[in-house]
Design a binder for these strands. Structure first.
Lengths: 211, 211, 211, 211
DNA sequence: AATGAATGAGAATTCATTCAT
DNA sequence: TATGAATGAATTCTCATTCAT
């Protein structure tokens, strides 16, 4: 805790590059062998720096992982949420088909954004479960997304079957997350297309008033 | 593989009791401080046996954890699935209200069965993500549940909106799992009652033909 | 194989000295109490370094022993073979007495080179028998010596009774080795002088044409 | 030492059979995986008895090995020495050819007697080097053989070039031992036939007066 | 006598982190 | 600031032997 003051915040170009090298090396190794089986010396070796240098930039292994996790979360957020926001604002009509379109667009974009390696992603999910600090980061990021979903849903208020928008937002987010994991990393034999159809049907039937 | 032959299979009553003591001690410690922060010597100490004795019954810490995980899975399965099966067969009419009742019954029972400690459960979920061997066990258990869900859904075929029962079963299971985690261990401020209402609504609207 | 990459190759003077300290400490302990009864922690303690430091330079106890064995082999080779080579090239006449002189010179020099401690030597011999990797090193070194003996014998071709120089070289090497062990570490009561006389007689009678 | 009183000496047929089972199991395992890598529990398991039973018959692992070593030594002695003794006494003439015949007979018989498995034999040789107790047993057995060789040589006194029969006996025994190891377990590419010719030549030239 | 469960000291090894140069 | 050497507590795992039944 007090220690965290120690880690250097690079200002010079060289320092920034070194930090970047460390993060990339760590990411490669976490992907290859997992977080727990990677150690600081290896990361340093892979980044082509001395062990001591590693500890100039990060106080410990976990800090690098947190940095990576934040980037992954941010990466997905930036790629997906932004697009959704834009799409939403362009698409103000509130009839069934257009909303169905929007939901399709969202699911498709999330799936596209999950370009992350299976192994690394599992490591991140596990770490979220095992480490309180990282769990908090996840919750914080999640809150942002939930807020956005609430906003989007409110835009279409009149077409919604559901009154409790907050609860619906949480449930929808969790559902979509789980579905992305199922499609991307799941063990089912069912083809993506079939799953996607049911997923969209489920969301539409739950959310939208049909005529 | 070859090593696994080493683990002793107790024949005497005394040995069976010792193995049980080890499993209980391990479960307590995994719950208290997590799997990764518990070591074999501690488990032995808590079980009031020698370190060597631990290694007579299990080749390593992971093996005890697998034993515990299997028991947890089995425990949930036996407590929930059985009830569902019984309920299903008693309730053959296929009108909307009765099916809604059944879904309510299922969700309620799953929630009741998840009496497991938060910490231990997170450790198990993390382990499923991190360890292939344990992932396989999970997948195997999951397949059984999916098959049961398929059976139940087929019983109510005529009342279902959904044609693709297999896909629906997988999606429903994942959804319910995630919702249980959300309610039991989630970080949302939304009260259980509100969430439950939306969860049931979602499932009914997705599955059932309304009149 | 993959693991062997782990062992640090010292670049700084300090590291080189540490490695040397470890080898010396190990040699002392193997001599004092034997290889099997010495453990890595003891070696580290004797070398005045931390246990971990030992494992920075060697992956395990065996690796230090291999290093020592190679040095012992090389030590004998350098001390003996070189002298023999020099002597051989100075001594080109091929009459009986000069050859007898040469054989005497060789045996005497080998005996002098075996200044190694009895205990350590037995440990090495045992290890050659027990460990394939070390056996291979021995065989490799032996091949070099046999080649040299073949060369020496060929120089004196005309004076030899034996046509099959390769077979003779192998047999002579094994014989000399065994005789050195007998004299240095053997349990016989017979005095070195008597043994040496017979050993030289044997070699001369076997090898040389008498007039 | 005091403990040795504990080991049961079986008198009943059943006990004798159990002891025999243990020795056979140990021999198999020492052959398969070496002495050091075999443990008491494994031996018991292979012999189909309980661990405790093992310790009723032997005070420790080494005792079984000693028993095996003695049997191996005795086995070679009985198969070889006896034959040599008989042959010697039948063959009293002392001319060159008959002695050469005898030497050939001896070498051939020793080679035949070494039917022992390579691995086990190396283990025994290593143990002789590493363990004083076992070394003593070897020395004792060797003394017997040396005495027999002395006796045989004295029988042919008049045909011998060598005056120092004791020294010659020791040297010859060591030489023959080494040659058997070379032929049986050695790493040379040279064919047995070539080696045997040189070995016999060597012994004859060393020992016998030629005309 | 036989069984197999239990012991526990001890060995090998790792690695996050600090420190001397 | 960078390097890489050093630390040493912590952990896993083994196995000869004893003991309770």
């Amino acid at each position: 805790m007090t220690k965290s003051l120690k880690a250097r915040i690079p200002v010079q170009q060289r320092g920034i590059e070194t930090k970047e090298k460390i993060i990339n090396a760590a990411m490669t190794l976490f992907t290859e062998k997992g977080y727990h089986k990677t150690n600081a010396m290896e990361i340093a070796a892979r980044a082509d720096i001395a062990t001591g240098t590693f500890y100039s930039y990060f106080n410990n292994k976990k800090e690098v992982f947190i940095e990576i996790i934040i980037r992954v979360f941010k990466g997905i957020a930036e790629n997906v949420l932004l697009k959704i926001e834009l799409k939403t604002h362009k698409n103000q009509a509130d009839n069934y088909n257009e909303l169905r379109d929007l939901l399709h667009f969202i699911v498709t974009n999330i799936l596209q954004a999950y370009r992350i390696n299976n192994r690394l992603f599992k490591e991140i999910l596990a770490m979220v479960l095992l480490d309180n600090e990282i769990e908090k980061i996840r919750i914080k990021e999640e809150k942002k997304v939930i807020n956005l979903i609430v906003l989007v849903l409110q835009t279409y208020k009149n077409s919604l079957r559901t009154a409790d928008i907050e609860a619906a937002a949480v449930i929808l987010l969790k559902f979509m997350e789980e579905m992305v994991h199922l499609i991307k990393f799941g063990s089912t034999d069912i083809k993506e297309k079939r799953l996607l159809k049911e997923i969209e049907d489920l969301m539409c039937r739950y959310l939208l008033i049909e005529n």
